[in-house]
Design a protein around this nucleic acid. Structure first.
Lengths: 187, 187
DNA sequence: ACAGATCGTATGTAAAACAGATGAATTGTC
DNA sequence: GACAATTCATCTGTTTTACATACGATCTGT
């Protein structure tokens, strides 16, 4: 499990060099850069995803869009509020089913999308910078293979099997507090 | 920017194949598995990190520990409360400086640590499964190189330079709402 | 000995996610 | 054609989480 903010290099004392931590460092580095690059549009990263989906004109109402992006439908509501207020997308009642609201990108929305897209490509190059072109291709390919299979263990399927394989049982009194009120009962 | 829950393979319509998304998929796959494997101990992933730090007996009070792990000191307080309640660690007043409280792992804490550690190694293997041994080594090495340099662009340093290089300016009314109350001002 | 700083803790506040209820609109069945 | 049931987006309320601030205890300097 990688540390959220390892801060300095000497943090890698003992439990570094493992996959999880290294993966986390690289991922967070990218996320940090990418976040900065999309911070100018409302909703940040998620706003960008919604914008991208709208600009590509993919079908379905905003509910389907929310499910696809993995955000709650209530979140999608005010996410679209902000994007619409910024003039990047529009809610347009579906003529076929008037309770559906199609999300379409405005002219400015599409422009902002392609602009941000190219910036994100630069961010990728920035993260991959320490690798020469050949190694970059290798890394991308290996990562692609991993991702392809990671998708299949996405839900509870294999994860649960793995968990029960390596079941806990060992730490005793931890299970003595199944309900977990993060904070002690408030005075 | 990767989608939180891409759900199915057909999500990779157009903005897939980019580094960020792929990286996110793999990372989340690992995090999901790892989370499940450490869910039995209080505090989850962060509880494990604290436990690991305590078991390795690294110096400094709980404040320094909080800073190292990147969590707030107030969070560290009730994080240790739970771990202590579970009998995994102990708060022990530092004889040299009695306002400092050293965090030491109990016998059971150390046992739980090594146990969890081996489980996490299995989780790594699980994620890397689709790669044959040779490719795994290559991947680990490339990732290590990326992480080494990613650390240096960790703070605002290069990130900011990159941002100002590729400054926004393009999306107009987005800057009209600099303060961002995620939800409209609550009636 | 006293002022100031530091450590851990307690408390309050704000932001975000989630769950349920509501209103508009569609579908089906009779 | 009318009515129940369903679905979509929205609204409201609750819970969780992080953060910021204040406090008591302790140490360090002069």
């Amino acid at each position: 499990m990688p540390a959220p903010r390892p801060t300095s290099a000497e943090t890698q004392d003992a439990l570094d060099s493992d996959l999880g931590w290294t993966l986390g460092v690289v991922f967070r580095a990218y996320v940090r850069t990418a976040n900065a690059l999309v911070s100018h549009l409302p909703g940040g990263p998620r706003g960008y995803q919604v914008l991208a989906a709208a600009a590509q004109g993919l079908p379905g109402g905003q509910g389907a869009l929310a499910q696809r992006l993995g955000v709650d439908k209530t979140v999608m509501t005010y996410l679209l509020d902000d994007l619409e207020k910024a003039g990047l997308v529009e809610r347009r009642p579906d003529p076929a089913d008037r309770r559906n609201k199609r999300v379409v990108a405005t002219e400015r929305g599409r422009a902002a999308w392609v602009d941000t897209q190219t910036r994100l490509e630069h961010a990728e190059d920035h993260v991959l910078e320490p690798l020469d072109p050949a190694d970059r291709s290798v890394f991308r390919e290996l990562l692609r293979r991993l991702a392809a299979r990671a998708d299949s263990l996405d839900p509870e399927h294999n994860t649960c099997r793995l968990v029960e394989e390596l079941a806990p049982e060992s730490v005793p009194s931890a299970s003595a507090a199944p309900a977990k009120p993060r904070r002690s009962p408030r005075r």
